[in-house]
């Protein structure tokens, strides 16, 4: 069964007909040609399909496109202003926070969303004081980025990139 939906993707409204079983990830990649969100596990376990969905980081492989009619989506591609990269993207380059790069668009979107969560005062599992504002040390970065796997194991430099991007 098909449904007509509208998505605002990286600043542009797009209208499309989707089969009701289509995930948001497949709608972006296969229907709209937006390929920066990557299909890794397709089961919500690797984080490579992470985008900012209505302002928050979210995996797109476990979301049905039809359930997000009208949503605002920012992908890693949309974080940059043309050739002018987002500070977190620049930090990934400068800190060499990648090897093959497949997980990187998801890592970058996740990091941008994570920094907003810290700014909003959200605690994590490793936050000692649930009441206080969290301090973004390396342990916090690792815990808050645990939803993004990197098979190349570039984690030390990913942490360094996020440390830089947070400044």
């Amino acid at each position: 069964m098909d449904a007509s939906i509208r998505l605002r993707v990286d600043g542009q409204w797009r209208t499309l007909d989707v089969d009701t079983r289509t995930t948001l990830l497949d709608a972006l990649r296969e229907r709209l040609g937006v390929t920066s969100p990557k299909k890794g596990c397709d089961h919500g376990q690797c984080g490579s399909c992470t985008v900012l969905l209505d302002g928050r980081r979210a995996v797109t492989c476990l979301a049905l496109a039809v359930a997000h009619d009208g949503a605002e989506i920012v992908t890693a591609e949309g974080l940059a202003d043309g050739e002018d990269l987002h500070p977190v993207q620049r930090a990934f380059l400068e800190q060499d926070g990648l090897q093959c790069g497949y997980c990187t668009p998801g890592q970058v979107c996740s990091a941008v969303g994570m920094l907003e969560e810290v700014k909003a005062g959200w605690p994590s599992q490793v936050t000692e004081d649930l009441a206080g504002p969290p301090e973004l040390d390396d342990e916090e970065i690792r815990e808050r980025m645990s939803g993004n796997l990197c098979r190349c194991g570039a984690y030390p430099n990913i942490v360094a990139a996020i440390r830089q991007g947070a400044r």
Binding site: L53, V59, S124, Q125
Partner: peptide, 14 residues
């Protein structure tokens, strides 16, 4: 604490 120990941040947001 229980919520924060479950899933991943981008799943908890959904």
């Amino acid at each position: 604490q229980a919520l924060l120990s479950g899933a991943s941040p981008q799943l908890r947001n959904l």
